[in-house]
Structure formats: C-alpha cells, structure tokens
C-alpha cells in the first residue's frame, strides 16, 4: 500500500474515532445536539460535556496512544526487536514512579511543570539504562529480561511508596498512576505535555533513516554511514521525552506500543522508518477506541484504561512473542 494512502486512511479513521468518542458516553447526546455544541450553539450543559469532558478526554487518549505507538515503533527499530515497548521495558513504570515521587513529596505543587518533568526524568533514566545495556549486550532476549527486571523494580518501589503512603488520598493517587486513565483530563493538562511531545517527536523523526539501516545489524549500519551513537542517543532521548509526557497525561499504559507497530509493519514492507508515523496514528486510534470501551462497559466503578489496554495487549504480546522464530 502506498504510504500516503495509508496515512490518509489512518487520519480519517482517527477523526472518526475521536468523533465517536464525543458521541458515545453515559449521557446520550444525539448527533443534532452534538453538532450544535460543536459550533457553539445548543445548551450550556451540552457545551460543557463536549468541550470540557469528552473532547479533551478523547484527544488525551489519542495523544497518549499515538505517543506510545511511536515510541514502540522507534524502540523496536533501535533494538531490532518487535517486543520492545515502553511498557514492557519498564520505561513507563519508571516514568510513573517519577511522577508519583513528585506527588508524594509535594514537589508537584511547586509548579505545574514539575509533574511532567519528573515523569520524563523517570522515563529517561530507564531508557538510558536500557540503551547502555543494549550496547554492552547484543542479545535481544537479555534486553527483554532486563526490561522485565526494570518493570519489577519500578513496581517494587511503587509498592514501597504505597506502604508508606500517609493517607488514603495519596494511596488512590498512586494507584491511578499505575493503572492509567484519561478521565477528567483538561486541555490545560495536554498543553503542559505538548512541548515535550514536540521535542521528542523531532528527535525520533531525525533518527528514522538510521533505524531502517539498523535492520542489517549495527556493524552493517555503521558501514552504510549511520552515526550509531547519534541514532541511539536520539531514540533514547526522544522516547524518554515522549513516554514521560504521555505518562504525565495518563499514567502508565502498556502494550499499545507493541500492538500498533506490529499491525502496521506488513503494510509498509517492514521498513522501521516508514512504520513510525502510521504506528503513531494507529496507537492513537486504538487507545481512543479502548477508552470508548472503558466508558461503555457497564462495571460498578469505571474500568481503568490501562487495565483494559493490558487485558487486550498482554495476550497480543504473548502471541507475537510465540510467533518469533528462534535463533535471532
């Protein structure tokens, strides 16, 4: 399939998904009232439901899903492993840990930027560690194992924080970071993460061609003229910034970064560079759809988005892992 056609289809599907997310919800809003609210007519209540609840929530889900899809595709290209993903490798968990630490010790109250910055610091720490481990050890299985170790370690530290939590309020705060959700997000929350997402995007886009060359292995890529150190650094910083920003919006949500690139790859001849943009769009669509599911599935208390993502994504991870041929 032609890349432009693929991106156009995904763009249209994205709009349709976000529109559906505005349309569906616990309070029914027929199309007529929805359109009225969109153009500024209609009742004040409809206007608030659309502009302050449903649309920011849908866009938050789209941005977070897109960020995770992009980071998954970039990490998979760099590490030459279809199972690499911020959630699996422990990057999201460390990012959530950074954010919770900032909340726990009250630093988040100092400035609105403290929270995203701590989330990004956590994500960068984990990605740097992974990249360092990946250079020293070329085995892809080892890398995944290190990622699982990182995830468990972040989980243990998070459990420690839960143990020490002074009151039930901070306890529920901690839980919401680990489960992940886009409920009650405002455009202001998104704007705060925006600059970091943008900066990370630039880093990732600049490393795209290097990722394609890395398909041949690091030595061959070096021979082709790839600046390996730069490519590695750009992907690490880019995914750190983007994952951190996404976690600061929605907490840790796993597996989107595995599923989206996996579905896209056959459509772009498995070229890691051409996987990036479509995987971002598809990641966004998947998370918007999952969030619609979260709102529509009748459960006593609302399902967390991260929980649903893991319920669908973890089996997908197992399936992709079992499809891998041994020896690589």
């Amino acid at each position: 399939m032609n890349d432009r056609l693929l991106l156009s289809c995904l763009g249209l599907a994205s709009l349709a998904a976000i529109f559906a997310a505005c349309f569906l919800g616990s309070t029914p809003m027929p199309p007529g009232r929805l359109f009225a609210a969109m153009v500024g007519a209609g009742s004040v209540g409809d206007h608030i439901v659309l502009w302050e609840i449903r649309l920011p929530r849908a866009i938050a889900a789209f941005i977070v899903g897109g960020a995770l899809g992009l980071c998954g595709a970039a990490l998979q290209g760099l590490l030459r492993n279809p199972l690499a993903e911020p959630g699996v490798l422990g990057v999201s968990a460390f990012s959530a840990l950074g954010a919770t630490l900032a909340l726990f010790y009250g630093a988040a109250a100092l400035s609105p930027f403290v929270l995203p910055l701590s989330a990004i610091a956590g994500a960068l720490a984990a990605t740097f560690f992974l990249a360092f481990a990946a250079i020293r050890n070329s085995s892809m299985v080892t890398l995944i194992l290190i990622g699982i170790g990182l995830s468990s370690f972040a989980g243990a530290l998070m459990a420690l924080l839960l143990n020490l939590a002074p009151n039930p309020f901070s306890l529920s705060d901690l839980i919401s970071w680990t489960l992940g959700s886009v409920a009650n997000r405002s455009f202001a929350d998104l704007a705060l993460a925006g600059p970091f997402l943008g900066a990370g995007l630039i880093f990732i886009v600049m490393s795209g061609r290097g990722l394609t060359a890395l398909s041949l292995g690091e030595e061959a890529a070096h021979g082709l003229g790839v600046n390996l150190r730069r490519t590695r650094m750009f992907v690490v910083i880019g995914t750190g910034l983007i994952t951190g920003a996404a976690v600061s919006i929605a907490g840790a949500i796993g597996f989107v970064g595995i599923v989206a690139p996996h579905l896209i790859r056959p459509l772009v001849n498995h070229d890691p560079a051409r996987t990036l943009a479509p995987a971002a769009f598809l990641g966004g669509i998947l998370l918007v759809l999952a969030d619609i599911g979260v709102r529509l599935i009748p459960t006593p208390s609302e399902l967390r988005l991260g929980v649903l993502a893991a319920l669908i994504g973890a089996p997908a991870f197992i399936w992709i892992a079992s499809q891998r041929r041994t020896g690589s």
């Binding site: 030459r80 061609r209 394609t212 041949l216 292995g217 030595e219 082709l224 790859r265 020896g327």
Partner: peptide, 25 residues
C-alpha cells in the same frame, strides 16, 4: 563499503529495499 560476518536481518525487508540501503550515504 562493508559486508560484516553476521547477516541476520531484523525485519523481513524486500530484496530491493535491502539493496537500496546500499545508497544510504
């Protein structure tokens, strides 16, 4: 240009795309 010993490809790229990577520089 360099032909290293290990030749496993991470992704099943098309033959023409692999050859085209030779033009990377």
């Amino acid at each position: 240009s360099y032909l290293p010993q290990m030749r496993a490809l991470a992704w099943p790229l098309k033959v023409r795309d692999v050859v085209a990577l030779g033009r990377f520089a």
